[in-house]
């Protein structure tokens, strides 16, 4: 009896936690299908009388939020940020995960420290640097600054992935006459593709979700990301078009939520490895 009770409690707690966690997300998606009339009501309802796609039309259409262009900017910057991260993290991670060399520990510490100093701490010099280089208000500057946020963590994650590849493989390849780089390129890299996919998607998510860097470094329609566009909507339409803003929010979060489902398993393992060791 007591055991049954405790099992029951388990599910009560689980239900409470899940409702708290998921309700805001549900509320966002749910309201995005309501017509204005049903959104601005004194008694919010859990049933939509006239479900509508109006809000989504508003989000994408020229009369409303016109998100299309910003979504493309975001896909472009986040995609390239992922590629840049992959290039630097696969090489740096290989050195850290495979070789014992003088200064290895200092470099590991340097990486850990780099990921700490973000956002407001480096904003002013970055703005000045970008202006001096003439790349302010471009997608390039965002790609470059996102690298500073993603490369340290991803290099670290990659070194873990390399650690799982048996060393004999490279040794065999080198005995067969491959150079270091050929062994790396042809033998090792293909084996860490799951890792590459994981860090690529992780960087994509980080870059996609960023607001603070894009807010400071971009303002024109050619470079602005969807997060900046979305935040501006609140100021412009916050009193009138909540349904449309919600639909825009859904369009902005859906890609990352879906990507995350794909990449979750690999990432969780890598990101928590520090905790388990502790």
């Amino acid at each position: 009896m007591r055991r049954l009770y405790s099992v029951g409690m388990r599910y009560v707690f689980l239900a409470l936690i899940m409702v708290f966690t998921l309700f805001p997300f549900f509320w966002l998606v749910f309201n995005s299908f309501k017509p204005s009339r049903e959104i601005f009501t004194v008694r919010p309802t859990l049933r939509i009388q006239n479900p509508t796609l109006e809000n989504y039309k508003w989000a994408m259409g020229p009369k409303g939020a016109n998100l299309g262009r910003y979504l493309l900017n975001s896909i472009f910057t986040a995609g390239f940020a992922a590629i840049v991260t992959i290039i630097f993290a696969t090489t740096g991670g290989y050195a850290l995960g495979r070789f014992l060399f003088r200064g290895r520990e200092s470099i590991a510490i340097f990486l850990i420290l780099s990921q700490m100093f973000q956002g407001p701490l480096i904003m002013v010099p970055w703005y000045k640097m970008a202006s001096a280089l003439g790349i302010i208000n471009t997608r390039l500057v965002l790609i470059l600054i996102y690298g500073t946020a993603t490369i340290p963590t991803c290099t670290w994650l990659m070194s873990g992935f390399y650690g799982n590849v048996p060393e004999d493989l490279e040794e065999a390849a080198m005995i067969d006459g491959c150079s270091y780089f050929a062994a790396f390129w042809r033998v090792v890299l293909p084996l860490v593709i799951p890792g590459i996919v994981a860090i690529g998607l992780y960087s994509f998510i980080i870059a996609w979700n960023d607001y603070q860097y894009a807010l400071i470094l971009t303002s024109s329609d050619f470079a602005k990301t969807v997060q900046v566009g979305l935040a501006e909507l609140i100021g412009f339409f916050g009193k009138t078009s909540w349904g449309g803003i919600m639909a825009s929010g859904v369009l902005t979060s859906l890609p990352v939520v879906m990507l995350f489902v794909v990449v979750q398993r690999y990432l969780v393992e890598g990101l928590t490895s520090g905790a388990v060791k502790g």
Binding site: P24, L28, Y211, L230, G249, V256, V257
Partner: peptide, 12 residues
Amino acid sequence: PWVMPVVVVSIV
């Protein structure tokens, strides 16, 4: 919640 963009979180 952790993976949602912070702007969307703020909106909700």
